[in-house]
């Protein structure tokens, strides 16, 4: 699960103008023709660095994203929910594995990425720094956060890097289950008893603003992305993904008689665009930089898992083991 444009800081990489102009032209022509870039192809330094950062953050978002819903894994109500939530959270771990692998093909080993996550050097999607107070929060995440991630991932699967596209295609297929499962849970709560309905409404009220943050700052505030769009690293802008998601899901929330805590929210029929209250981007920055309600807990859980698992990994690591960059 991952939204867009979470990164503010500039990336350190060779300026594309300093790259070999012939190689760069061939590279760009390949992308222009709609062909994928494969790991052993020549690529500009900036392309590699951007992709590593993006795929790595996406992978971190999956592994950390397993935690808010995981809050309810031992408490899911009934067999069907229990089995589904176990499978759903497992998928998030599986997606992290797929994405770390895709990033590894660019030359950064998985352990190095996990170290960067734990040390706080590398970021993950902001939304997972919020707590899941009730079962309905977990339903919200399964349905609407995953829906946001799918909008983003379907777009990115059309991107230019072969291994990332392949991982995303697989992920999108698996996530269609998450979306349906999450919607199913929300439908049951929204059409259920007054207490269930209330629980669902409160979850929406809590998660609405983090969800608006999920897609990243508005395009007018974002760092320059022309090169990334041209290289098909980024396919849709933050505003485009946010608009797509609003268009697909706000009507479905309203259909269930639930309300959304933004009285400005409406679709402008003339422009075809959704209008909404601008979310607080200062809060977004604060949370990304570590000051959210659950940042410390999320990293502490990940650290604990790494620490408790270390003896296992050490015991199975042969002395002569030799790590090489995976193929694809």
């Amino acid at each position: 699960m991952y939204g867009g444009g979470n990164t503010f800081e500039k990336i350190k990489a060779k300026d594309p103008n300093e790259e070999d102009p012939i190689l760069l032209a061939e590279f760009e022509a390949r992308i222009e023709r709609g062909e994928k870039i494969e790991p052993t192809d020549w690529m500009p330094d900036l392309y590699r660095a951007q992709l590593i950062r993006m795929i790595e953050q996406h992978a971190h978002s999956e592994i950390i994203g397993a935690l808010p819903e995981g809050t309810w894994i031992t408490r899911a109500p009934g067999f069907k929910r229990k089995l589904a939530l176990m499978a759903k959270v497992q998928d998030e771990v599986g997606h992290a594995q797929l994405l770390y692998s895709a990033a590894e093909t660019l030359g950064k080993p998985r352990e190095a990425m996990i170290d960067d996550l734990i040390s706080g050097k590398s970021k993950y999607s902001n939304i997972f720094n919020y707590p899941a107070f009730t079962w309905a929060d977990s339903a919200f995440i399964s349905w609407l956060v995953d829906a946001g991630a799918i909008v983003n991932q379907v777009a990115n699967s059309r991107g230019s890097y072969g291994p990332y596209s392949r991982a995303l295609e697989r992920i999108c297929i698996e996530e269609s289950f998450h979306l349906k499962f999450g919607h199913h849970c929300v439908i049951h709560l929204a059409t259920g008893t007054p207490a269930q309905r209330k629980m669902m409404q409160e979850a929406i009220n809590r998660w609405w603003h983090p969800m608006m943050h999920f897609f990243g700052p508005p395009d007018k505030m974002s760092v320059h992305t022309d090169t990334l769009m041209k290289w098909k690293v980024k396919i849709l802008t933050n505003d485009e993904t946010r608009q797509q998601w609003l268009d697909m899901y706000v009507p479905k929330v309203w259909e269930l008689g639930l309300t959304i805590p933004d009285n400005k929210l409406r679709k402008n029929e003339e422009t075809g665009k959704w209008e909404y209250t601008e979310p607080d981007w200062e809060e977004f920055k604060r949370v990304i930089n570590g000051d959210g309600p659950c940042n410390k807990e999320r990293l502490a859980v990940r650290k604990t898992a790494e620490e408790r698992g270390r003896w296992v990994r050490k015991a199975i690591l042969a002395k002569d083991a030799h790590y090489v960059t995976p193929l694809a």
């Binding site: 352990e111 734990i118 502490a300 620490e307 690591l317």
Partner: peptide, 20 residues
């Protein structure tokens, strides 16, 4: 969980080999 100390980057990476 808040007690976890990770030696992470300072220790040799326990990176297992990969299999296709």
């Amino acid at each position: 969980i808040f007690k976890a100390q990770i030696n992470g980057p300072t220790e040799k990476l326990d990176q297992l080999p990969t299999f296709e």
